[in-house]
Structures are given as structure tokens and as C-alpha cells.
Amino acid sequence: MPVKKYMRRGTSKFFFLPTIAATTMIPTRAEITSGTEFSEFIAAMDGWTVSNNEIETPNMADTYDGTIPGSDKAESSSFTFYEDEEESEVEELLAKGTVGYIAIFRKGDVPTNKSMDIFPIRVASQSPQYTADNEAAKFMVTCSITSRPVQGAAVPAAT
């Protein structure tokens, strides 16, 4: 079966959602609509993945060191944003201490597609990036992932 490849840049959508009512952390279409899309501000990102801390299980009967799955952990996650010369919408939206959810639509906002990831976050820091290089002004927002994210959820139907 051939793979229909695509590029995330220009396809994926990123939203900040201040609240999600469901304990499943699956937002409704109304919660997504009331959130803020910030895709166009993103210059770079890091993290936004979950990894497993495997546990080594050596034993005296074998020279091979086996492993078993251990606890899961979200990697350190951040966004680098372009700074707007006049407005500070994203800086205010993601100020240090802000609590909410980052919703990532990996394949775009395509209803029923199982490509939505939800990360519960608290903004750990926000800092301008200073450089003498010939490039646009940027700032970085680092987020703590406060509990297990939801990955591969279905995008809610449009209303």
C-alpha cells in the first residue's frame, strides 16, 4: 500500500485551549472554536512527544540485559514564536504560569481524523531570544506537561 506523504508545515494546526470540560481531555468543537490558533506565529518547536523510561532487567542466568517498559514521560516541550512588532497577543496568551491545553492537529483540522493530540500544560517560562544575526525577532515559551497527554484522538466534527 503506497504512503501518501505530506509536510506538517502548512498542514498541522496548533491551538491553545483554556479549558476542556471532559475528563477524557477530548475537546468539543465549541472549545476548539473558543480557543486560539497560533500556528502562524511558530518559528520552531521542540518536544511535544511522549517517551518511555525502560527498566533494565538483567539476571544472572544470561549475559543479555533485557528491558521492560517503565513509566512514560513527556519530553521537555517548547515553542519559539515570531514576535509581533506591535501586538503581544501570544505573549499574553502564553504568559508564565498560564494553565490550559495545547491541541495539535497533526493532519490539519479534518473532522473524524484520528490525528489530534492534547497536552495539558502550565507555561514554565517565556523569554525573548536576543541575537545580532539577520533574522526576525523571536521569543521562546517552555511548557511543563502536567499530566498524561491524549494522542491520536479523533478531531471533533464541525458544527
Rank of each mutant, 00 (worst) to 15 (best):
V110F: 02
V110M: 08
A124C: 06
I121Y: 05
T112Q: 11
V99D: 13
A136K: 15
L93Q: 04
F119R: 12
K96L: 03
A124N: 09
L93K: 02
T98E: 08
L94Q: 00
R122E: 14
A132G: 10
S127I: 07
E91I: 01
G108H: 09
L94A: 00
K107Y: 00
E89K: 10
M116Y: 11
V99F: 01
F105K: 03
E135F: 03
T98S: 07
I118A: 01
Q129K: 12
L94Y: 00
M116L: 15
N134S: 12
S115I: 08
E135P: 01
N134K: 08
T112H: 04
I118Q: 00
I104T: 05
N134R: 08
M116D: 09
I102R: 00
Y130W: 05
N113C: 13
I118V: 15
E91H: 06
P128M: 00
G97M: 06
Y130A: 10
I102H: 00
Y130R: 09
K114T: 11
S125E: 13
I118H: 05
S115D: 15
V141W: 01
N113R: 12
Q126W: 06
N134P: 02
I118D: 04
A95K: 14
A137S: 12
I118F: 02
V99R: 15
I121Q: 04
P120A: 06
D133A: 14
R122I: 08
Y101E: 05
I102F: 02
I104H: 09
T131G: 10
G100V: 02
S115Q: 12
Y130N: 13
S125P: 05
P111F: 02
T98P: 09
S88R: 12
S88G: 06
N134G: 01
V110N: 08
R122Q: 14
F119V: 03
E87L: 10
D109S: 00
A95V: 09
T112S: 14
K107H: 05
R122M: 11
Y101T: 04
A132D: 12
T98M: 11
E89H: 04
Q126H: 06
S88A: 10
E92A: 05
F119E: 01
E87I: 10
E89A: 09
F139T: 02
I118N: 00
T131K: 07
V99T: 14
G100W: 00
I121S: 04
R122V: 11
M140Q: 14
L94T: 06
Q126E: 11
K107I: 04
M116V: 05
Q126F: 05
E135R: 14
E92W: 04
D133H: 05
S127V: 02
N134Q: 10
K96N: 12
Y130Q: 05
M140T: 15
L93P: 00
S127Q: 14
T98C: 07
M140E: 14
E91C: 03
